[in-house]
Nucleic acid binder design. Structure first.
Length: 426
RNA sequence: GGUGGGAUGGCAGAGCGGUUGAAUGCACCGGUCUUGAAAACCGGCAUAGGUUAGUAGCCUAUCUAGGGUUCGAAUCCCUAUCCCACCGCCA
């Protein structure tokens, strides 16, 4: 949620900045609603003040009336009339406040000045590249063919067990998958100073509201058949960020890392990436989350992106970093870097991590604050997060980039200690 | 699943129909004292919204959340959520 004060003081500027995100702010509607809100609030508070004053006065009158045994009805009757007027006024105020709240909840975060201008994916800006694209003497096989041949990936069985867009891994490939998440966790905890957390994979509505998935993006989520409105997490960002919902953090920064499965309905992506394990309903991800003071969130984004990249570097996977343009930016993000890894079978870079600064957008929805020692105020924290990395796609990248002509896979050096020294999967 | 007990400011913890936005302690901030520090003492210290030129004053809301009773609710009643204890069941 953006700050409503910003809309009140600088409506035209905010509207212009949101345009860069392809969002049309209905300024006229906002002004009209806010004026109505103001009128109704002033009236309501006036009536409340009257009621409070009257209740105080009448208390004494009633007490003396009772002591003297006289009638108290003339006193209470006036209170009743006041109360009726007040209730009506309160209702109309609450109604308009709810309308404004709904409007506010649907407004995306304001993009940072450094976000490239553009309306879609094509306008994203490449920031840097790393690694040589491997020149193979043969046509690279795709990861699903490789995995199936090695008897380590079986999509048919996954489809039998559940359905499309699920994966069944076995043997060395399953172990490699586990080694990857362990490797990532180890690097981030022991070298980048993140604290490992294990969190629920089912969350409630409030948590999804806090990070911005709800109410706007319900169709992307798997919802449980349960009166408590539970959902499977689409990313660890949701449970991890919400650890501090409604809390006042004593000491910043806080850096957390968590390995979780992620569940996405992939509604609206029919026909996209139907082969292989690029786009699944369930995948593992190691997520980095930072809670920082506002003045540090931009450097935190650079740092966190660097932490995610270091995994790709250690695995020696060719990749690039791009800055998403305004039109491609997520709802809650003020700026996002995507890390894309080279996928030989597609001759393309594909997203493997997304690192964003949400500024105070999520913190405002979550009411996560800290004590600003300079001003003495309670201020909203900033949240920054990113994948470090998507485990399933990392497995894909390794299978494809480390393949040999005979279909065997060389295991990256850094993973061998986690694979009992194994060098090659045949 | 059953039965009890809870949820109050940054934290701990009083209050249990009107004078309580809320005692007290801790923490924090300012001051006195001191060569300096500690201790002691004095003072300050909730959040959000409205009004306003105003971080001044005034007004409103907020004691887990939502309903209700009452002229008046932190305080009484109902519901939900979470926590704690004991019993039953169980990875």
């Amino acid at each position: 949620m953006i700050d409503i004060k910003l809309l009140r003081t600088d409506l035209q500027r905010v509207a212009a900045e949101l345009k860069r995100k392809n969002f049309n702010l209905d300024s006229a509607l906002f002004l009209a609603l806010d004026q109505q809100r103001k009128d109704r609030q002033i009236l309501t508070e006036l009536l409340q003040a009257q009621k409070n004053k009257y209740a105080k006065e009448i208390g004494k009158l009633i007490q003396t009336a009772r002591a003297e045994g006289t009638n108290i009805e003339e006193h209470t009757a006036k209170g009743e009339v006041l109360k009726k007027k007040l209730t009506a006024s309160e209702n109309s105020m609450v109604q308009i406040q709810n309308e404004m709240q709904e409007m506010l909840e649907d407004i995306p975060n304001i993009p940072h000045q450094t976000v490239p201008v553009g309306s879609n994916e094509a306008d994203n800006l490449e920031i840097s590249r790393y690694g040589e694209i491997p020149k193979l003497s043969f046509d690279p096989a795709d990861h699903s063919d490789l995995g199936v041949k090695l008897s380590g990936i079986d999509f048919e069985r996954a489809a039998k067990i559940t359905g499309a867009r699920f994966t069944y891994l076995s043997g060395t490939i399953a172990k490699l998958h586990r080694a990857l998440s362990n490797f990532m966790l180890d690097v981030h905890t022991s070298e980048h100073n993140y604290k490992e957390v294990y969190v629920p994979f089912i969350v409630n509505r409030e948590s999804l509201f806090g990070t911005g998935q709800l109410p706007k993006f319900e169709e992307d989520l798997f919802k449980l058949e349960d009166s408590r409105e539970f959902y499977l997490i689409p990313t660890a960002e949701v449970p991890v960020t919400n650890i501090f919902r409604g809390e006042i953090i004593q000491e910043l920064p806080i850096k957390l890392v968590s390995h979780t499965p992620c569940f996405r309905s992939e509604a609206g992506s029919h026909g996209k990436d139907t082969k292989g394990m690029i786009r699944q309903h369930q995948f593992d991800k190691v997520e980095l989350v930072q809670f920082v003071e506002p003045q540090h969130s931009w450097s935190a984004l650079e740092e966190l992106t660097h932490h995610a990249r270091s995994i790709l570097q250690r695995l020696e996977l060719p990749h690039r970093c791009i800055a998403l343009c305004g039109g491609d930016l997520g709802f809650a993000s003020a700026k996002t870097y995507d890390l894309e890894v080279w996928i030989p079978s597609q001759s393309k870079y594909r997203e493997i991590s997304s690192c964003s600064n949400f500024t105070d957008f999520q913190a405002r929805r979550m009411k996560t604050r800290y004590r600003n020692l300079r001003t003495g105020n309670l201020d909203l924290v900033h949240t920054v997060n990113g994948s470090g990395l998507a485990v399933g796609r990392t497995l894909v990248a390794i299978l494809e980039n480390y393949q040999s002509k005979d279909g065997s896979i060389t295991i990256p050096e850094v993973l061998r200690p986690l694979m009992n020294g194994l060098e090659k999967i045949k």
